[in-house]
Each structure stands twice: as structure tokens, then as C-alpha cells.
């Protein structure tokens, strides 16, 4: 445990140093996140200027959904996105060797290998937007906040698992650039009210790739009750998929070859 904390501390230090080297990149990354945020808010305003409800959600609930989905993405981005971006390149270019010879768990080493520090600002801004949007909400109490945080953390792990499995395809296929973007498309689709989709898409986004549950139901905790069955389902899904992703990782490592 002590070793893990030391390692995490070291990763954070390295990430901060990289941030200071690539300052302009960090600024652009920050701007793009804000732009996405702005596009989503503008889109929401336009849609709700023509309709008072969208698939049963009022404007406030819709904004909660957008902010919750963005918050989950930002936390995922902070912890995992840099590692995932590097991983497929390292697999294809044979640079994984340097990790494999270290006396650490390679799966978790790669998962937490780098933090995207500018995302911390995005997390802060999204949280403030959420607080502002719920400033008049009298249903929020301590237990709701705790429940909401638990759901957000579970959601981040769900997002990580789907991306991790997709990145591992690089062990078997050479050019996977477009495939790596697929979870993002599914996630974007899930950041809309699930009720707008036909039944089979709702089923896929709820139970196969449960991004729909993690975004929609997490945001509904703030205004309605969260279906406990879904929470249990997400916990089970995360446990099973974590095991599967570790198996895929191990099988991938067996398949991996380099000529260093």
C-alpha cells in the first residue's frame, strides 16, 4: 500500500513537471474542454427554447445531466486519459518493455501512469456549474451528496473499463486510431436523455455499455430517486468487467512482442 501511494505521488509530480514543459498544450486542452461545455449548454438552450420538456426532463434536469456527464469525463480525463492515449502507441511501437520489467502490477501502473492536471480546473468549473444549477433545489442533503459522489466514482471506473478494453485491441490490431474514439461517441450519445432513443438503443446504452445509466441515473439523484437496482447492476458490471479487462490485458501481454 505504501509503495502504491509513493508511486501515485511520483506520477503526480511527473505529470506536474510535464504540464510546466507543455504549457501551451495545457492551455489549449483547457480551452477545448470549456468549448465543449459551451456547445452543450448552447445546444440545451436552443432545444429548450422550442420545447419545455425533452423525454420527460425539464431544463434544470437536462443541465444536471450535461454537467454530470461532463464531470464524469473530466475526472476520467484527470486520472486515465493520458495513459490510454500513450498505451496504444507503446503497444504498437514495442515500448511496453520498460514497464514490464518493473516490479509493479503493469495493469495498474499503466492505468494511473499520468494525470492530466489541467482537468482539475475543468472539474472545479463543472462542480461550480452543478452547484449553481441546484442552488434552489431543496431536496439535496448530505446523504444525496454522498450517494451522488459514490455514483460518480463508479461511473468514472465504468468509463475507464470500456476505454481500457478498447485500447487493448492494439495488442492484436495495428491501426486502431478510429476505434479508440468509439467509446467517446457512445458516451456522447449517453449524455442525452435516454428517453429520446428507441428501445434497442436504450437497452444497449443501459445494459451492454451502461454509459446511459451512469450519466442519466447519476444526474437524477439530484432531483429524483436513483433506482437502486441500477446501482447494484453497475457495481456488478464493474466487478465483472474489471476481471475481464485484467484477463484481456494478460492475454494481450502474452501476444505482445517487441524487438528491443
Amino acid at each position: 500500500m505504501k509503495k502504491c501511494i509513493k508511486l501515485l505521488n511520483m506520477f503526480f509530480k511527473q505529470s506536474t513537471e510535464e504540464l510546466l514543459i507543455y504549457r501551451s498544450t495545457a492551455v489549449i486542452t483547457l480551452i477545448f474542454s470549456f468549448m465543449f461545455f459551451a456547445v452543450e449548454i448552447i445546444f440545451g438552450f436552443i432545444v429548450y427554447s422550442y420545447s419545455s420538456e425533452l423525454a420527460g426532463l425539464n431544463f434544470n434536469q437536462y443541465m444536471n445531466l450535461i454537467f454530470t456527464a461532463t464531470l464524469i469525463t473530466n475526472i476520467y480525463q484527470f486520472f486515465f486519459t493520458v495513459g490510454h492515449e500513450n498505451l496504444s502507441d507503446y503497444i504498437v511501437e514495442g515500448e511496453l518493455d520498460y514497464i514490464l520489467i518493473r516490479p509493479v502490477n503493469s495493469y495498474f501502473y499503466y492505468a494511473f501512469n499520468r494525470q492530466d492536471i489541467p482537468s482539475l480546473i475543468n472539474i472545479l468549473v463543472t462542480t461550480l456549474a452543478l452547484i449553481y444549477n441546484n442552488r434552489l433545489n431543496t431536496d439535496i442533503n448530505f446523504s444525496v451528496i454522498v450517494f451522488y459522489i459514490i455514483c460518480i466514482l463508479l461511473s468514472v471506473w465504468t468509463l475507464f473499463l470500456v476505454n481500457q478494453i478498447v485500447v487493448c485491441v492494439a495488442f492484436w490490431k495495428e491501426k486502431v486510431n478510429k476505434l479508440l474514439g468509439m467509446p467517446e461517441y457512445f458516451y456522447d450519445a449517453s449524455s442525452r436523455p435516454l428517453g429520446v432513443y428507441p428501445g434497442f438503443i436504450r437497452f444497449i446504452l443501459s445494459y451492454i455499455i451502461p454509459f446511459g445509466i451512469i450519466t442519466n441515473d447519476s444526474s437524477l439523484i439530484l432531483t429524483e430517486r436513483f433506482p437502486l437496482v441500477h446501482l447494484i447492476y453497475i457495481i456488478l458490471w464493474n466487478i465483472i468487467i474489471t476481471i475481464i479487462s485484467v484477463i484481456i490485458w494478460k492475454k494481450g501481454l502474452k501476444h505482445y512482442a517487441s524487438a528491443n
Binding site: 420545447s51 491501426k175 450519445a189 436523455p193 428507441p198
Partner: peptide, 26 residues
């Protein structure tokens, strides 16, 4: 890289489905 091409088409389809579904509801 036909696989890549197929994935590109599929991603656009998801994007389009999302936009159409929202406007359909409106």
C-alpha cells in the same frame, strides 16, 4: 485499412442517431 473505414462510418452513424433522436423528441 478497411476496418478503420468501417469504424469511421459507424461513429458517424452514432453521432447522427444522437442528433436525430433529440430533434425527433422535440
Amino acid at each position: 485499412y478497411r476496418f478503420d473505414l468501417g469504424v469511421e462510418f459507424f461513429s458517424k452513424l452514432i453521432e447522427l442517431t444522437m442528433t436525430l433522436a433529440v430533434w425527433n423528441a422535440v
